[in-house]
């Protein structure tokens, strides 16, 4: 059992890291054909960095476009961020102070995360336009995330697992020393669904996490009149004119 989970998480980690790295490599390597920032756009690189920061930290464009989606999206993503902070302690023998301090917020984060997901899911079902554009995978993705959230919260509020032993298992994994994992059903569900999420990450719409940094419409500097922007594949045309 423990061996199964150990292998599962080694595989999931490799798939996530290598898959994402390859995808990002592709994004970096692919040239942009022209200057296409959506204007008004920053005139400097630091301006662009700030634009992307506002996008990632506050979902600026989503705020402009739809307040309900923005609220649910912020609940989910901010909640998830707190949950991840809380989980860092399972990977540290000596837990940092900031992680200690984040512990209680992680619980609220978990609740916010599930609430946000249910809100987004409700919109997908109730709102005609979003129902129209939703595919099977969009619903399954939400189901998976809700399953992760609910199974996680259940270990806090319904049936505790032996969390000391869980931590020992993960610290062991990091040292290639497989430890025993408690055989609680909610823990099993939680871990399997997390591993599944990690493995589909590089092959699904979860790539938006990387994509948001590479969209030329947001990531380009508005300096088209000052600098030429010749894609390598287009350079030869200059000679034929």
């Amino acid at each position: 059992m423990s061996v199964f989970f150990a292998i599962l998480f080694y595989v999931a980690t490799i798939v996530l890291v290598v898959g994402l790295a390859l995808r990002i490599k592709t994004y970096v390597a692919t040239p942009t054909w022209l200057k296409i920032p959506v204007t008004p756009a920053p005139l400097t690189k630091s301006g662009v960095a700030f634009r992307l920061f506002r996008e990632v930290a506050f979902f600026e464009s989503l705020f402009k476009s739809n307040r309900w989606i923005w609220i649910f999206a912020v609940l989910f993503h901010a909640g998830l961020a707190l949950v991840i902070l809380r989980h860092v302690r399972y990977f540290q023998a000596d837990v940092w102070l900031v992680i200690e301090l984040a512990q209680p917020f992680g619980i609220y984060g978990g609740m916010a995360m599930v609430a946000g997901l249910l809100g987004l899911w409700a919109r997908r079902v109730v709102q005609q336009r979003i129902r129209y554009i939703s595919g099977v995978s969009d619903h399954l993705m939400l189901a998976l995330l809700v399953l992760i959230g609910v199974s996680g919260l259940s270990m806090k509020f319904v049936a505790h697992t032996d969390i000391i032993q869980v931590k020992a298992f993960f610290l062991g994994l990091m040292r290639f020393n497989i430890q025993e994992l408690p055989a609680d059903p909610n823990l099993m569900v939680h871990l399997v669904s997390v591993a599944v999420l990690m493995m589909i990450f590089p092959f699904s719409k979860l790539l938006h996490v990387a994509g948001v940094f590479f969209a030329p419409s947001r990531a380009q500097v508005d300096d088209a009149r000052e600098k030429r922007h010749l894609a390598p594949w287009a350079a030869f045309m200059d000679d034929n004119r």
């Binding site: 995808r23 592709t26 994004y27 692919t30 040239p31 942009t32 054909w33 296409i36 464009s61 989503l62 476009s65 739809n66 989606i69 999206a73 987004l120 919109r123 997908r124 709102q127 336009r129 979003i130 554009i133 939703s134 595919g135 969009d138 719409k205 790539l207 938006h208 994509g211 948001v212 590479f214 969209a215 030329p216 419409s217 894609a231 594949w233």
Partner: peptide, 21 residues
């Protein structure tokens, strides 16, 4: 897809949130 980063990133990134609808 090889020539235009925008196309590749945009085809991957959409989460069907509905903000544009």
């Amino acid at each position: 897809l090889e020539k235009n980063k925008a196309l590749r990133v945009y085809l991957d990134s959409c989460v069907k949130c509905g903000a544009c609808t």
